[in-house]
Every structure is written in C-alpha cells, then in structure tokens.
Design a protein around this nucleic acid. Structure first.
Length: 773
DNA sequence: CCTCTGTAGATTTTT
DNA sequence: TCTACAGAGG
C-alpha cells in the first residue's frame, strides 16, 4: 500500500486568514449559514439558481482558511469532471495556490479509482489495473455469452452490460445478487461472476467496479476504512440527489453518522433515476444522519418572478419532495409564453424566427437555447437554422473519447505500454487490415487462454510454429516487429510523437485517408488527440487520465444558439430558453411512464422544472398538434405539464400566426382535443413538401451532417449571411454527401446545384468546396 | 474481405 | 421512415 501524502511544511506554516475574511461578504444569511455550519451532518437544499456552487466553494475555503482542516483532509465529491474542475478553479480564486493540495477533490469515480489503486490487491487486482470503457465491456461480455452458447441476438451483450452496471450501482456483487435478478433464464448470476473473474484475469475493472471494489475493501478491512475516516475530516458531496445506492454506501463507509458530512443537492432536480440515482438518498438524509441540520437556499438570483412562479407551480404537483419555495426580488420580465402550433416544422419555423428577432434586438445567439426532451427532436431545429444560416451548436452527443478512431489509437498505445492488454490486442491486431482474419484471432485467443498467457505471448510463440497459415504468420510477425520497434522508440521520443509515428507507420492514417466519407473528420480527431496528449507528462499519465478525467470542451465560446437535451442543460443558464415539444408521449416521455409509472412521471416533471429554471429572462414553451414520429404522422395532445403551469405566470400567446387564435390555455387545449383533423384519417400535409431544401429524411440531414464538427459542443453552422456571393452559374463544386456538381442558380447564400450523381439539390454555399473545372 | 440484403428498434448519459 | 448491424454470398 502506498503512503498517504504527508503534510508539507509550507502548508502547515501558512497563516490562517483573519476572521471575517472577505470571502464571506455578499453571502445571504442562508448561504452564510451553509458555509459556517461546518460540524456534524448538514444537508443543503439548494434550489436552482440559488448560488449553490458559490456556497460549496466558499464552504471549503472557509474550512481551510479557519484552519479546521488541511487541503488533503477534505473529501469533496462531484459527479462530473466539469463540476470538479469548476470547483477547484473557484477555490483557487478564493484562497490561492494552496487549493492545489486538495488532492481528494474529484468525481466519485476518480476518487474511488485513487483509493482502489492503493488497495487493489485486496480485491485481487494489481494497482496498475486498467479501466475499461463500455465498448470494451460489451466485447468482453459478448465473448462470455458466446462461450455459453447464448443467443446474442435475443440476449444482447449490451443488455447484460446494462444489467451488470445496474447491479453494481446498487452495490450487488455476484454473491450478493438477489435471486430475483436474472438474465438469460437463470444464468444471470453465473455470467456476472464469470465476467468479474475475467476482469480480474485481465487486471481490469469497469466503471461500476471502481465503487463496488471500494465497498468490498472498506467493509471487509476495518483498518483501511478507519484510516480514511480519520483522514477525511470534512466531506462534501455535490448533487446529492443524483447519488446511487453504491455511492451512498460508499459515503456511509467513509463517514460516521455524526461525522462532518455536508451534502448539497436539490430533490427537485433529480433527473437521473434511470441510471440508478436514488432520490430517496436525499429524501432520507435526516433519518440517515440523526441530528442533521437542513439548510434551504431559496433565494434565486437567476430568473424573474414569472419564470420561478411557473416552475414552482409545476413542481408542486410532485409528491416525493422535501419542499421549498424559490423567490426573487426581480419583479421584471414577461410571463412564460405557451404556444400551440400546427406541427413540428411550424414549431421550428416559429422558434427560428424568434431567434432572429431576439438577435436583432441585441441578444447574442449563445444567450439562446433550445432544450428538447430527446435528441430526435433536434433535427427539425437544425434544418430550420441551417436554412436561415443561423449558427448553432449541438451540445452533447457522441463523446470524443468514445469515438472508434480514438479508441483504436488508444489501443495501439496501450498495447505498446503493456503487452498483456488482450482487449487492446484484439481491437487493433487487424486494424488496419493486415490479413489476420477473425478465425486466426479467435485461435490466438483460444491458445492464449488455454496456456494462461497473454495474446501477444501466444502470437510470439505461434510465429515460429506451423499453426495458422504461413501468410497470417508473416503478417503477425510484421505486427510484432512493429510493436517492438515502437516500444523501443517510446523510450526515445515524447509520447505524443510516438502516437504520431504509430498512427502513421501502422497504416492507420492511410486507412482513414482512403475513406472519403468520414476519413477527414477522423484524421482531425486524431490530430486533436495528439494535441491533447501534450498536456500530460508521460504516456502512462495520459492513459491513466484518459479513461476517467478527460473531457474536451470543444466548440465552446462560439456565438451560436445552443441546442441540447434537457438533461444536458442541467446546471446551465440562458437569458432566453425555448422549450418545444411539450406534448403527451414526447414530454412526459411515454416510455418513462410505461416503465416507471408515477415515479417516472415525477422525474419527467422534475425535468420540466429543470428546463424552465434554466431561463434567466424568458422561457417560451410550445407544443404541436401533429408530429412525425418514426416517419408516421401522429396527432399530439398538449403535455399535462402545460396545464399544470399556474395561469398567473403564463400567457398563451395567440398571435403567432402559426395556428389560429388561442384565447386561453384551457381553450387551446380543448381545441386540440376536439379538432376533427387530428383523427386517425389524418395524413401528411402536402403543403410542406419541398419547403425544406433537401430530400434526406435521416435524423441528421446530410447537409447538416456535413457542417458538423464532431465532438462535444459541435459547432455546426457558421454560415455568414453577410458574405457576398462569389458563386456564379456553371461553377464546379464538391459536396461531402452529394459529390461533384455544377452550380445552376445562386440565391443569396443558397446554391442550386446539379450534382452529377445525386441530381439537383439546394445547398448552403459554405457546405460545398469549389473545385477546378 | 468486401458488398449486399434483411431486420430490429428507434430516451435521457456520466464515469 | 430510417439506420445500424449482422449474416450471407461473391
């Protein structure tokens, strides 16, 4: 076991700031109480926009400044890296560089990983264990299922992976798995156990294991647990309403019921029940920690009274809540607008027009956001915004480090770093294709497993044997030779240079170059990868961090309308927020209700609450009477949430021109209910055809796809409407999706192009490249 | 090993 | 309706 860090003299000698330090200034009485109530269990119920982060960081600063604890004696846990980073930055701002000593400030997972590395041997791992991502996890599970001759179509690896994750979230090891839990007709527990055993063999663990192994270590080794309990004199937990059972148990093991534990959260913003969060944890806090002090932060500094009034009225319909009432001194501002429109496209047109209007009145694009329940709803807005050349960014979506090309690159690096990494081997032994087919790979793995050695060891032995085809053996021998060479080079060159070399020499870059469709994006991603490696001292340091602590904020800071899911919007704020799609089935999501009943509905309502409270100045809700769902036209009813909005704070906007007059909400609703046109016989309204300028019906239309800079916070369209047209009839162009073509007509920034293969299309000029004739 | 064809399934997402 | 993905066949 590694030693815990020892205090530095410089830290010990640092003078405590005088009492009444200025960091306490400007806090309201409740905030100040939350900061100064340092002893014993405390629950801070921090409503939306009540200065939660400020309280959190000030509290930590206060504990340090008053000498109650030294930086390494504080445990501060968040859910996301972003939150951890933000907290560290703000504390540094408050107390200066000594904040660097906060070595136990991080996400649940990263802190659990640190603890696990110190005591890995207690659960049969080496401290150098690797952390598998979901892709690795699923491949491994697939192998197990196939070994058991289980039909992987009926019983998909993904569903078992999800189930195991769920079990781990609840703190269940295979031995503790309740008999009611199962998979593939009674084989659930056996498969789970086999999976865990396989992980140990690979010296690996998945995300869930980080916490689960911690639970095992802390509950079975009293001395270890005691050591941490003594060390962590003050514990702080952010977003407590999102903790799952395993995280809760973990906290309980690290703290006694009288310990100095401060949990901050908002039961009304618990929106992750579907991935294991237990609102119950926060609702139960006072019972779990007898004598706990509960402090409510209810003064809101973000929104106007109408926004808060609308949100409060809505959330009041929930039964499972501790209850609090947000208030503000801000008396200004409009009521929340609610509008019904004809269909999804009309909704997109309305919102896009309003974005233009807001822009003309001086609001920046990035001050506006469109918050949707599910990502399929984004398409309509993307189409409309592209058409109007309004810049927008889709926040969320596939994450950079989960991209195939990034994982491939990592696999090369992992295999160079450690020959034993069989999963890395399997991933890239034939990527790019080097003539080692599936059959050969399976054979290698089989032999390796039979002999209890790594795949690479088996390969080295096979090269000199007469197993496998001669051609395969040659390919493998080249592969081994390359790896050995790179490994030797790793000592000489800097790690990102090694990455460049490997990608180039392995033929990976060439493989991507040959791919006209996605190759360029992938090469760009790989460039970005190499760049992000430069922030680390070594390959080891990079790989350690990449699985847990790395996320890139790309495309941030651009002036673009922010489109994201309601989940993605949590913690953010915008002057103007659009909330489309408030229709039964869409929001609340039918599936939520089907699967979780009343609990699911309450979570949906909390999601609505989160959405409304993102708005600083104005929130605009809308619903459509008709919507295309999976290609089928369906008539929609307004969401029950619309009727739960208190009339004092809401106005039904009737003059949108997108549908007839709507004198009042109730009336508007009955209009939807009764309208005969929405019955079963309703079919696609023909007048919309041809209005959008591309024929593609894919969820992400071709013309938008081409403008996507993939990544988190992809900036999608940056067409500059002001740029004069430099196009003329007859120009030859190349388009990512449609190929080569000739310009037929120019209309502002839109071009009518006759594509050689795809026929005539209208495209935005920034999405085509000019080519020589 | 690549290309074609049929079919399930199509919320939310962090680590 | 569309897409991703698996399995068959060239």
């Amino acid at each position: 076991m590694t030693d815990l860090p020892t205090p530095r003299i410089s830290d010990l000698a640092r003078p405590a700031p005088p009492p009444g330090a200025d960091y306490l200034e400007g806090l309201n009485p409740e905030q100040r109480r939350a900061v100064e109530t340092t002893e014993g269990p405390v629950l801070v119920l921090a409503g939306a926009g009540t200065g939660k982060t400020r309280v959190l960081t000030t509290r930590l600063a206060h504990i340090l400044a008053t000498g109650r604890a030294r930086p390494w004696e504080l445990l501060a846990v968040t859910f996301t890296n972003k939150a951890a980073r933000e907290m560290r930055e703000r504390i540094t701002h408050l107390i200066g560089p000594s904040a660097e000593g906060l070595r136990w400030l991080g996400t649940f997972h990263s802190i659990a990983a640190q603890i696990l590395r110190r005591h890995a041997e207690l659960v049969g791992l080496k401290s150098s264990f690797t952390i598998l991502d979901t892709d690795d996890q699923e491949r491994l599970i697939k192998q197990l299922l196939e070994a058991e001759n289980i039909d992987t179509k009926r019983w998909t690896p993904r569903s078992l992976a999800g189930l195991i994750d769920h079990w781990k979230n609840r703190g269940w090891t295979p031995e503790k798995l309740p008999t009611t839990e199962d998979f593939a007709n009674g084989r659930g527990q056996k498969l789970y156990a086999a999976y865990q055993a396989r992980l140990v063999t690979l010296n690996a663990c998945d995300f869930g294991d980080l916490l689960l192994h911690n639970l095992t270590i802390l509950s079975q080794n009293a001395d270890v647990a005691e050591e941490y309990r003594r060390r962590f004199r003050y514990i702080l937990v952010d977003e407590y309403q999102d903790t799952n059972v395993a995280q809760y148990l973990w906290l309980r093991l690290l703290t006694s019921s009288t310990g100095n534990v401060c949990c901050v959260g908002d039961d009304d913003q618990s929106i992750y029940g579907w991935r294991g969060a237990e609102v119950d944890n926060i609702l139960r806090f006072e019972r779990d920690f007898p004598g706990a002090k509960v402090i409510r932060l209810e003064r809101n500094y973000r929104s106007t009274k109408h926004i808060l009034g609308a949100a409060s009225g809505l959330i009041a319909a929930n039964r499972d809540r501790l209850g609090k009432t947000l208030w503000t001194e801000d008396d200004s501002g409009d009521k929340v607008k609610v509008r019904g429109v004809w269909d999804g496209e009309a909704e997109a047109r309305l919102i896009a027009d309003e974005i233009e209007t807001a822009r003309r009145s001086g609001l920046r694009y990035k001050d506006m956001s469109v918050l949707v329940r599910a990502s399929f709803q984004m398409r309509a807005f993307e189409e409309r915004l592209v058409m109007l050349a309004i810049p927008y960014a889709v926040i969320g979506g596939p994450r950079f480090f989960e991209r195939a090309e990034i994982r491939d690159a990592h696999a090369y690096l992992r295999l160079i770093q450690s020959e034993d990494d069989d999963l890395a081997f399997e991933r890239i032994v034939n990527t790019p294709k080097r003539g080692v087919g599936d059959t050969s790979v399976q054979k290698i793995l089989q032999i390796a497993r039979a002999q209890g050695v790594s795949a690479m060891t088996a390969v080295r032995a096979l090269i000199g044997s007469d197993e496998l085809q001669a051609r395969t053996r040659t390919a493998l021998s080249n592969f081994v030779r390359d790896l050995d060479r790179w490994r030797a080079q790793a000592q000489q060159v800097r790690h990102w240079e090694l990455a460049e070399t490997v990608l180039e020499e392995s033929g990976y870059v060439d493989m991507q170059r040959a791919d006209r469709a996605t190759g360029q994006t992938r090469l760009d991603n790989l460039k970005e990868l190499v760049q992000s490696m430069q922030a680390f001292d070594s390959l080891t340091a990079y790989l350690e961090h990449v699985s847990l602590v790395l996320d890139l904020d790309r495309g941030a800071g651009e002036d673009a309308v922010q489109i994201m899911t309601l989940h993605g919007a949590k913690g953010l704020e915008f002057p103007l927020v659009f909330l489309p799609g408030w229709e039964e089935g869409v929001f609340p999501s039918q599936r939520s209700i089907d699967e979780k009943g009343e609990k699911g509905l309450e979570e949906e309502r909390r999601l609505a609450y989160v959405g409304v409270t993102r708005a600083k100045r104005e929130a605009r809700i809308s619903f459509a009477a008709n919507r295309q769902v999976y290609g089928r036209w369906t008539s929609q009813l307004p969401s029950r949430f619309v009727d739960e909005l208190p009339l004092d704070h809401v106005e039904a906007q009737s003059d949108t021109g997108y549908y007839g007059a709507q004198p009042g909400l109730k009336e508007a609703k009955s209009r939807w209910d009764d309208a005969p046109t929405f019955g079963a016989g309703y079919s696609s309204p023909g007048w919309k055809r041809g209005q959008a300028f591309a024929a593609s019906q894919s969820p992400r239309p071709a013309y938008a796809r081409n403008a996507v800079i993939e990544g988190e916070g992809r900036l999608i369209a940056t067409a500059d409407p002001a740029a004069g047209s430099s196009w003329s009839r007859g120009d030859r162009v190349f388009h990512q999706k449609f190929g080569y073509g000739a310009v037929r007509a120019v209309e502002g920034n839109k071009l009518l192009v006759a594509f050689d293969k795809a026929g005539e299309k209208k495209v935005i000029d920034t999405f085509v490249e000019r080519v020589e004739r």
